[in-house]
Design a protein around this nucleic acid. Sequence first.
DNA 1: ATCGCCTCCTGCGCGC
DNA 2: TGCGCGCAGGAGGCGA
Length: 271
Amino acid sequence: MPELPEVETTRRGIEPYLLNESVDSLTIHQWQLRWAIPKTINQIKNQSINAVNRRGKYILIRTNAGQAIVHLGMSGSLRICTDNDEPRRKHDHVEMHLSNGALLRFHDPRRFGCLLWQCADQPMHSLLARLGPEPLEKDFDAAHLIQATRKRKIPIKNLIMNSHIVVGVGNIYASEALFMAGIRPTRAAGRVTYAECEKLVEAIKTILQNSINQGGTTLRDFVNSDGEPGYFKQSLFVYGREGEQCQKCRSVVQQKVLGQRSTFYCRQCQK
DNA sequence: ATCGCCTCCTGCGCGC
DNA sequence: TGCGCGCAGGAGGCGA
């Protein structure tokens, strides 16, 4: 479900409730997520939370003893409950009670998400070690992208969704960014020019930032940590609009499967 | 190294 | 209504 804007929206939502609070207790109702939650997660108990960071689509809850690594997968969400009587819902797999009385709940119907623990004395977790640059940072630029695309035959859309090249670009924003940049998603990455890489980098930054500003995209069930939807859906040009008229040129928006994922584009606007 | 396919899991909307 | 089917915002891992 969540792409970078939704993860960032979530991070911002939970941070005020977690920062400088200690973890009074942790209750695991379902250990089996994408990977089993490690027993070492219990090291977070009684620790004070120093930071709530994001790296790509991972939320990192840092303490002196180590950090919890949370990924929301396709259907996950983190929710803060301040009303202690609010009942636990189906698929609320993990509950973290904080010293301020707030309760953080990890909800994930499909269980593609994960909750891992990295001890403070361990090297960077292998899931984080090889990630590409953050799309909104300066080191994600046309020079980086052109270097990553040379001699690559995979479709450009698949390439920008590869977190080892740039993190945080998921299925919705990949289609949207390619539309904004005027590049056909199916084009071999190696055939994208430098000038097009510049456009694409700018498009990715603009779209992700705009979406963050609007609280992310809600297609069916994304809600932020307060249970509110995001409002970026209305800003989508092509995603989910197959058969509709392109908003720029009025030709018909196409849908095609690429790398097992639905992909949307305009034949006229994207070459 | 690169590529394409498979997999994990539940829920929902659709057509019959 | 009910059922079966296909699809869904991710991404590691595998074999070729």
